[in-house]
Amino acid sequence: MAKQCVFCGEKAGSREHVLPAWMARAAPKAFTESSGERNLYTGGQMKVIPHKFATMTVKCVCGTCNNGWMSRLEASVKPFLMQLTRGEQIALGPAEQTALATWSMKTAMMMLRASYLDDPHPIPKSDYKHLYEYGKLSMRRMRANAFYVEPPGDDEHHIWGDLRVLPFSTRYRGYQVKLRVGWFAVQLLSVALPPAYEIGQLGRTLRAQPLWPAQADQFTWPPLKPLPYETWLAMEPRQLAVMKRPV
């Protein structure tokens, strides 16, 4: 367990629900009662342990963060998050898109902290610090796309959520986060760039809806075509255009 809050550096120990408790109460029974497994990394070794995706908690944050900005972030996505996870039609404006992208990254960070008890950690400390200080993702070096992915299985036994975090190294180093909760799936890309550079915008396709940076027009959910689950699992980081920032 982290001794210091992974966001602000104060003393950790406040119990944070990886997914909000209200979400577990509103989710399908097959989600709240389903058991799964997760990889636990500590002391240079990995072991597989059972866990319940809906009720997982971590103690890597302080009470001020947990009951302050993190609680406000959960409240900001509450009006629409369950509709997204059920694949229901909804439109989100720029403020809701920003909250959703931020919530997705924060949730992925907490899920990872439930698995990685020691450093090194797949997501660098600088990205935790950025989220804490600015309350949103970096507009210069982070991008996100949302996908409509049918949960695998049947009505009684299906995998309601999963997470994958993979580093990549092309011209610049970075990592890919793939988080899925119900039908809502998001791919977040973070690239370590020199200060004078930024990532180009992601384009909209029949299966991908740009989420971050927030779009001036509405985010319309779901995308026109669902993405098969196996395709989602195999998805690699797309080639990103890197360009000099305007002076």
Results as ranks from 00 to 15, higher is better:
H121Q: 05
G182C: 12
W160T: 01
E133F: 12
H157N: 09
W183S: 08
D154P: 03
V181T: 10
K178H: 08
K129C: 03
L131V: 15
D162L: 12
A146L: 04
R173W: 10
P167D: 07
N145K: 15
G174S: 07
A144C: 15
G174Y: 03
G161A: 13
A185Y: 13
R143P: 07
E150F: 12
I123C: 08
Y132T: 00
M142H: 02
F147L: 11
E156H: 05
A144G: 04
T170R: 06
G135S: 05
G174W: 02
K136M: 14
P151H: 01
R180C: 11
R143V: 00
P122S: 12
A144M: 14
H158C: 15
Y128C: 03
Y175T: 02
Q176Y: 07
Y132V: 00
R164T: 03
F184K: 07
G182A: 12
S169G: 04
D154V: 14
W160Q: 02
V149H: 12
Y175V: 05
R173D: 12
G161H: 02
G182T: 10
M139N: 06
H130M: 08
R173L: 09
I159L: 15
W160K: 04
R171V: 08
P124H: 12
A144W: 02
F147P: 01
T170W: 08
E150K: 05
H158Q: 09
R164C: 05
Y172M: 01
E133D: 12
